[in-house]
Design a protein around this nucleic acid. Structure first.
Length: 325
DNA sequence: CATCAGGGCCCTG
DNA sequence: CAGGGCCCTGAT
């Protein structure tokens, strides 16, 4: 596998809206990592391969403080020289994907009144709802999550990356990036099946073709309202309610997408919110919507990530049982 | 050894 | 609108 060395570098700073939570924004412990790394994190520093349209970059983001103001230092790496308008475009894209511009005052005020979970919301105040990926990339990840345990999802993504992905090096570190949709045009469904991804081979083949043809415009959907976006996403072959929910929340930053609750999520929510074995999904949904209104999914995201942060440092027996590695 | 459900979705009746 | 089938894996 050829490795692309990205040795051109530019730096700039961004001032996120305050308050801002660096680690909560750039690391999501509920996302299970695969072996061929797409990103890496340590407190105060974050790296990833970054796909913007057809171009591939390395991205490093560091927590920084300048004149008592919290900022982030962005370093971009490429194997070609950067054009001026390219830098502006990348900056805007990073701001969008990590929601560095959003105003969460209304949300913060709402959750301040939450008797049970206000300590959690306070702890993570300034955390954003992010996607490091393009729509196509997160779609691929969502597809390999379907109907599979975590270990199997990791395996599927790793074998796909090893065959079709791209390996890059920047800042002395190695990362992988997901292929472009058109790069699968000459790959047969059988070749995809050989990656042991099962019936998902058909989904990925058809989806990639739809993206390669330009049937869906990722950027145009950013300007549309939730229901319209959902309709467009569900039209894609292999995208149902759960995959649409993931995309709507992470890629399109819609906070009120708490209509679909998968069985494995139901058990974890039951424990988190009721300390019970199994609460009916309709009750969970109604209670959450009543409590958090238009911020339902964002609020759940805070509580959800918090428990997975805790899992990094302490053993939580009931959770280990539920997530079934 | 066999059986089965899993971090859904499509298709059929 | 309910239910069967789909790939592969690891748990039982």
């Amino acid at each position: 596998m050829k490795k692309y060395l990205l040795n051109q570098k530019i730096d700039f700073f961004i001032s996120p809206t305050a308050p801002f939570h660096f680690d909560g924004t750039f690391h999501k412990p509920s996302h299970f990592p695969n072996n061929l790394k797409l990103e890496d994190w340590e407190p105060g520093t974050y790296w990833q391969s970054l796909r913007v349209e057809k171009k591939l970059y390395g991205l490093k983001i560091e927590n920084a403080e300048i004149a008592a103001k919290q900022k982030i230092k962005v370093s971009l790496y490429s194997n070609k020289e950067f054009a001026k308008d390219e830098i502006e475009k990348l900056k805007d894209e990073i701001i969008w994907r990590f929601e560095l511009h959003v105003d969460l005052k209304a949300f913060n005020n709402l959750v301040k009144k939450d008797k049970r979970f206000s300590p959690i919301f306070k702890k993570w105040i300034g955390m954003r709802d992010t996607s490091e990926y393009t729509l196509y990339e997160l779609l691929i990840i969502a597809i390999v999550l379907q109907n599979a345990t975590v270990r199997r999802s990791q395996q599927m993504l790793d074998s796909l990356l090893a065959h079709f992905g791209r390996k890059i090096e920047f800042d002395g570190k190695e990362f992988w990036a997901i292929w472009l949709p058109e790069e699968l045009e000459n790959v047969s469904e059988q070749e995809l099946r050989d990656m042991k991804i099962g019936y998902r081979a058909k989904f990925i083949k058809r989806l990639s073709h739809e993206f390669a043809e330009g049937k869906i415009d990722e950027y145009a959907l950013r300007r549309l309202e939730q229901e319209t976006v959902k309709k467009e996403l569900v039209k894609l072959y292999g995208v149902g309610p759960e995959t649409a929910r993931i995309l709507l929340f992470e890629v399109y930053h819609h906070y009120d997408v708490f209509d679909h609750i998968a069985p494995w999520q139901q058990t974890i929510y039951s424990r988190l919110f009721y300390n019970k074995q199994l609460v009916p999904v309709d009750k969970i949904r109604d209670d959450i919507k009543k409590q958090y209104g238009n911020y339902s999914m964002l609020a759940v995201h805070y509580i959800w990530e918090d428990i997975f942060w805790r899992r990094k440092y302490e053993k939580i027996d009931w959770l280990e049982k539920e997530i079934r590695l």
